[in-house]
Amino acid sequence: MELKHLVIRELHKEEDQATVISERGGSVNTQHPVVPDMVLSLNNALARRSTLTHGSFNKENPNGYPFIQAFENYLSQEQSSSDFLTLSDLGITQLAAAMDSPSSHSAVGGYIIFAHYQQERYEFLLVALVRNRSAISLNDQLSPTEVNEVDLDKLHQAAKFNITSYKKGKDSYLSFMGTKEKGDITHYFSNAFGCTDVTPSKKSTGDLIRATRDFCTQNGMYDEREQVVEDVVSYLSRQRSEKNTANLPEIEQIFDQHIPTEKTEEITGKFGRFANSERYQVSQEFQPHTHTLNAHTKLKAKADNWQVDFAKRSLGIVGSGSDIEFDEEKQTLVLRRMPSRVVEQIKRTLEGDDED
């Protein structure tokens, strides 16, 4: 990671109280040895979240969101330390105003960190809200002492701007951290930075899988459909495990590998636009949602004395030749092609010798 600029400011706000911007803070020396590690910790903490929402600036109302113009001005300038401080100061002003809105009365303050950095081939702006936590340290006499430290692992709110994607004109270049709280309090970060068109990662993942099935069905790819879905889900799972976002161009390439020869000219390169249409609204880039992936790929059920957990692709009706066949009339499941070790385990259990 190459850290270009860093600004740290502080917002004072208690629940139901007005927000006050502290005079403390400002630009931070990026050459200090601990500073890059701090930003990397924040970036990793955001990557671990599965409740990210993705979207873009609200360009229809730029006057209502001053940060949008300030962001564009910053990118068009020298991007000096003073330029970044100007951008950050405007950002924190907008945050304070958003936190003071009636719907965000429960929001509380903390340290606001603005970081401009390069990571591999992408350039980012990260804005994070963190707070102190109590910890125990030992003094010179080895006596326990309570100290306050910044909790970098627990982000309260965060926004990440993919500057590289923005410059390339991609549809999705903003990521925001969601919460389990209800109400507009969860949206003050996105509102402050002019992003109102956001899609939860859970919805994006589910809509993409739905679009995958529908595209195959509408284009007569019946024989290829389940394999395409499996490959797309595998891609999403891999991106999620590697803490990377998923993007439609790469998924489109997966599709193109499965298109029958007679349909190559007709539908090659068209899935991205199909999934990004008004019906599905899958962003060009989004964070895969783990639980949604599991829900679409696995079947879990249990009764009083048993439970099952298997991949949905293994299930079929009687006579389908699937590893697991369902007989609706008899209300039974038949397991086929069981591994020899499972067969032996069942035999030992029936014989009363199941100690191992």
Rank of each mutant, 00 (worst) to 15 (best):
L3K: 01
H5I: 03
E10R: 15
S27K: 08
S27L: 13
S27P: 04
Q31Y: 10
H32I: 03
V39R: 01
S50L: 05
T51R: 10
N61F: 14
P62C: 11
N63T: 06
Q69I: 14
F71M: 06
N73V: 03
S80A: 09
F84Y: 08
I92P: 01
T93S: 13
Q118K: 07
Q118L: 10
Q119E: 05
L126P: 00
L126R: 09
S134V: 11
I136K: 04
S137R: 14
S143I: 13
E146C: 03
N148L: 15
L152N: 01
L155G: 01
Q157P: 07
F161N: 04
N162D: 15
T164P: 06
S165D: 15
K167T: 05
S175I: 02
T179S: 14
Y188V: 02
D207L: 13
R210P: 00
N219F: 06
Y222S: 12
Y222I: 12
R225Y: 02
D231N: 14
S234C: 03
S241C: 07
H258V: 15
F274L: 08
E278L: 09
R279L: 12
Y280A: 04
V282G: 05
S283R: 11
S283P: 14
Q284Y: 08
H289A: 11
T290H: 12
T290Q: 09
L293W: 14
H296W: 14
L299E: 00
G316Q: 09
I317Q: 11
I317V: 13
G319Q: 04
E328V: 08
Q331E: 12
T332P: 05
M338K: 09
R341M: 06
I346L: 13
E351P: 00
D354V: 00
D354M: 06
